[in-house]
């Protein structure tokens, strides 16, 4: 299936890649001196990447999350902005930093949408043999309000954020920091990044804990405390044309110990990768 899909993508886009360096434009050069293409000249940033990728699901009895299409829909005004689900109000912007008030949805809920139910036989072969249904508890999206600070320079880019629940879903908060350093060599671009996020006990316990009423002999109750997730990421891209980009990204996130020790968590790490062609409108 994956091989067929990859072949289809390659066949579809091969002419584009082969012709990328020899575009012939048959038009009169009335303005033979052209400017510099600046994608940021528009308030909108709309793009789509088509390829293949996966984000692993750390939950027990769960399926990984396939990534075939990655949409990028954003709008940036002087104050307000929308960035792929995040809504922001920029209150300060100077040569040192950009400070914005933000709202977002906590998307850890996505993991819980790809689980299934299994039956576990306990005390097999004994008089006390029982079949217990094990279902990963359901969790909701949380609407979070917070603030974000962005800063950049020749030293790289820094993103600091703090978000708290305002939807009475988990009642907790998260504080995160990430640093990235982009390196460009003409069309080639490489960006390693590292990040860490502190998750409060309430947030951690809502998503990764097991309430007594959700527990059974095969799924014990568990209360998760606070913890720090750490992530590494490496993104590389090659600019094929002014619109098309070939991108590859790999990332790994180490779940905090409190979450990783939960009986509903099977993997301590969440890994993700994606390779595909991106088009920016």
């Amino acid at each position: 299936m994956l091989r067929q899909f990859t072949r289809a993508i390659v066949l579809l886009l091969a002419p584009l890649v082969l012709d990328a360096e020899e575009t012939t434009v048959l038009s009169a050069p009335e303005n033979a001196n052209l400017g510099v293409i600046d994608a940021a000249a528009s308030n909108w940033r709309i793009g789509m990447a088509l390829g293949y990728g996966v984000r692993t699901n750390p939950l027990i009895q769960s399926a990984d999350i396939p990534i075939i299409v990655d949409l990028d829909i954003a709008w940036f005004g002087e104050r307000f902005f929308f960035d792929n689900g995040d809504l922001g109000l920029t209150v300060a912007d100077n040569e040192w930093l950009t400070f914005s008030a933000m709202t977002r949805f906590n998307s850890d809920r996505v993991f819980f949408g790809r689980t299934d139910t299994r039956f576990v036989r306990l005390n097999a072969g004994t008089a006390n043999q029982i079949d217990v249904q094990v279902t990963v508890p359901d969790r909701d999206y949380a609407l979070e309000l917070g603030a974000e600070i962005l800063s950049d320079g020749d030293w790289g880019q820094l993103q600091l954020a703090a978000f708290g629940d305002v939807s009475a879903t988990h009642g907790g908060y998260e504080v995160s920091a990430s640093y990235s350093y982009g390196m460009r060599q003409q069309r080639w671009y490489l960006e390693p990044s590292i990040g860490a996020s502190y998750r409060s006990g309430k947030l951690n316990n809502y998503y990764w804990g097991v309430l007594p009423e959700e527990s059974n002999p095969a799924l014990p109750a568990y209360e998760a405390g606070a913890g720090i997730n750490v992530e590494f990421r490496l993104m590389g891209s090659y600019q094929l044309t002014s619109n098309w980009t070939l991108s590859v990204v790999a990332e790994v996130e180490r779940m905090n110990d409190a979450a990783a020790a939960s009986p509903i968590v099977a993997d301590d790490y969440v890994t993700g990768f994606f390779a595909g062609f991106g088009y920016r409108f």
Partner: peptide, 10 residues
Amino acid sequence: RRRKRRTRHV
């Protein structure tokens, strides 16, 4: 700078 921020969605 906001155009270079990363969202943290799954």
